[in-house]
Design a binder for these strands. Structure first.
Lengths: 336, 336
DNA sequence: GCTCGTCGTCGAATCGCTTCAACGACGAGA
DNA sequence: TCTCGTCGTTGAAGCGATTCGACGACGAGC
């Protein structure tokens, strides 16, 4: 591989001049600049990333911690966030080092070894064991999800609590008074996955305030378990007329279960989903949905990370306001 | 951050000694070793990745190019491959830099800048524009998928042609003589995605050899388009009794379409899927399946990449033999 | 005509690690 | 007792970039 010295020799200048041509940090005369640029192309030179990192103490690499679970479970939300991070990072000239959340020590290893300029963590839990590590790092970190204590860390996420409230309000406006939230998997709730618990809080709060009978039922993403969850919801809320479903993988199973029970959407039961809108294309019937703007979350996380590399900034928690898109799966409850 | 010199000073040795303790490349006496290890822990020292890369010309980073399309489309196969790569890489002590396939120049940028020790490319096409670039690199690269010309590059994939043949044979053994392959999306076939076209070749070949009436119909992954594809297959092959479905995202739509047509599986129509086995959990009925061993493909790609970093090795194409798992969705055709 | 500031370029120091050649101590073999 | 090897350790030379201070040339201002 060609080095900056090779380029300098070929162009008949010193290597610092080549460096300044590359960075533009000092003025370089027209002729010199062209000679250097020629030499660069001639030798197909590109600067050694390690050497640059050593000299500048910047790597132009962002660390992204993805939940391995989600990769296997094939969660559309997670994938869209990753896609958002990847494309936004490239737009800023950064690369992305991806890590799974299997080994808590990895985060420290990356940061301490100056491998990354900043870290983005997905799927943060309410009490996340990684937070103390992050708080002690030199590099900024951005959390996707909101822990109980932010510890001066920056967060970005959909405002799931507001989404829960919005959903109840929407159903109540249609006249529903007996509703259920089919939520995340039992495991997700148990470990305190923040998207899982925050929407439950919002849902319960608003239902309580509006005097709506309600239940919260965890939901797994296989067909039989989805059917079981629907049955349980109908048992817990007598005369149930509406469902809020916050589990993208289980949506087909829920719809299938309703169909088997002879319940039409929305004539017999209204269904509102919380998921990335794009997912609707993969469902048998169009569903009204509270959008999870996953790509935007990923992009915003990158923007926040990039900002904080340039100059230190105060921690900030950004909660995106939920938007509801009607596709006709919510209507008035049937007259009994 | 602490440097190796800080550690050396604290331990009362030279920095080369610290380095040798770390690498084990020279014998170090017991007492010295303990003092050094103590100092390392005391200062929470971890070596600067850039400096190390500069000195050794190794980064311990693998580059992985994922199809952006697939992230958005949420393809289970792609995610499993990524998961396999990620976990296998960590087991080898490597990190993974993930890139999308949006910008062909990225591959060259990573390699030329010595950012990665090796590259793994997913979703290689039959005529892939990135191959000439790869062939010219110093670093080894591993293709997931098999292009028309391998150009001395190493490849790994499921033997999709064999999978196509195996499928036809399996259906023929059950007595089917009128079958269709519902394949990848039109776009995937058009761009020459190698998994898409290779299975078609194998399917056609074996069907021809066994005298089985057949058709190949592209398949998109929305419900209405899946229904259209089923209709088209039934129109093209009169008296159709079996389907081979090679499109994981469209499977629910295909099953739904069959159900709407009043066709039971397997009494009226046999269905065989080509997909990662795990996906079956997300289907309404169990399907017999030719497994796409996605995690294993990812792991193998890493192993091949690691091997080739240590010593130069000849290019090699590994095709994994397809395995068929029966789950009862294939039976004898109905008597007319 | 002299001085001063600006512009363009250069040389050298620096970043933090690895590794090679060298060297002292010490034990074994003659 | 002397020599030779081995073992453990060190100092210094890279690796390939960035960046700071310095310096000559040249134009402007007096």
């Amino acid at each position: 591989m060609a080095t900056i010295a090779d380029v300098a020799k070929l162009a008949g200048v010193s290597s610092s001049t080549v460096s300044y041509v590359l960075s533009g940090k000092r003025p370089i005369s027209g002729p010199t600049r062209t000679r250097v640029e020629h030499a660069i192309r001639e030798l197909d030179f590109s600067p050694h990333a390690g050497a640059r990192a050593l000299a500048t103490n910047r790597t132009n690499v962002l660390g992204l911690v993805v939940p391995l679970r989600a990769l296997e479970t094939n969660s559309a939300t997670v994938m869209e966030i990753v896609a958002g991070v990847l494309t936004a990072a490239r737009e800023h000239g950064d690369d992305v080092l991806v890590l799974t959340d299997e080994d808590v020590a990895d985060v420290h290893r990356l940061a301490a070894g100056s491998r990354v300029d900043a870290l983005i963590l997905m799927d943060v839990e309410r009490q996340d064991p990684r937070l103390p590590v992050l708080a002690a790092l030199r590099q900024p970190s951005i959390l996707i999800g909101v822990p109980s204590r932010t510890r001066e860390l920056s967060c970005i996420d959909l405002d799931f609590a507001a989404a829960g409230r919005l959903a109840v309000r929407h159903l109540a406006e249609h006249g529903h008074t007996r509703v259920a939230l089919l939520g995340a998997s039992e495991a997700a709730i148990a470990r305190g996955a923040n998207y899982a618990v925050r929407i439950i809080d919002g849902f319960r709060e608003e239902a309580g305030r509006l005097g709506v009978h309600h239940a919260v039922v965890p939901l797994e993403d296989t067909y039989p378990q989805a059917a079981a969850a629907v049955a349980r919801a109908r048992a817990e809320v007598e005369g149930l007329t509406a469902l809020l479903v916050h589990n993208e993988g289980a949506l087909p199973g829920v719809l299938d279960a309703l169909a088997r029970d002879g319940l039409r959407v929305p004539e017999d039961v209204s269904v509102l989903a919380v998921s990335p809108t794009r997912l609707a294309a993969h469902l048998p019937v169009p569903l009204s949905v509270i959008d999870v703007p996953a790509v935007e979350i990923g992009r915003t996380a990158v923007a926040m990370a990039v900002d904080r590399q340039q100059r230190p900034m105060a921690a900030e928690t950004r909660l995106l306001a939920p938007r509801l898109l009607e596709h006709g799966s919510c209507a008035a409850p049937p007259v009994p």
